[in-house]
Design a protein around this nucleic acid. Structure first.
Length: 110
DNA sequence: TGCATGACGCCAA
DNA sequence: CTTGGCGCCATGC
């Protein structure tokens, strides 16, 4: 049984609030939760059981807008296809106009 | 208790 | 742009 830490719940809660056509980074989520050094923990929490929580994990990428997790989805192209389906252009496994698509929980959600 | 691993981030060469 | 290294924190052996 997973520890069910609030950290997990908080991560999932933030990710669920990401609007379609937008995306955020692991570091941004970690910083919003107060764990500025916990970017890895965010990714760890996601990969741990995001499929069970029904989280739009495809809207979470690394700091450079790269789809670092695309290889972990159903198929290596699922993540990209989902993003493009929502209006987010992806090229070479990276989000185009990353600055525009970036959704900062501390700024947008606060 | 120590070491290796990881959906990260930052920095140097 | 590509490597290589360090720091971070939690988990597994």
């Amino acid at each position: 049984m997973k520890k069910g830490n609030d950290f997990f719940n908080d991560v999932y809660d933030v990710v669920r609030q990401i609007p379609a056509g937008r995306a955020t980074s692991y570091g941004a989520i970690a910083a919003y939760l107060g764990n500025k050094r916990g970017a890895r923990m965010v990714g760890w929490a996601m990969g741990s059981s995001y499929q069970e929580q029904g989280i739009p994990a495809h809207r979470v990428v690394n700091k450079t807008g790269e789809l670092s997790a695309s290889q972990l989805f159903e198929t290596p192209t699922t993540m990209q296809e989902r993003l493009e389906s929502e209006g987010v252009k992806v090229e070479n496994n990276r989000i185009v106009n990353w600055e525009q698509c970036f959704w900062d929980p501390e700024k947008e959600l606060h």
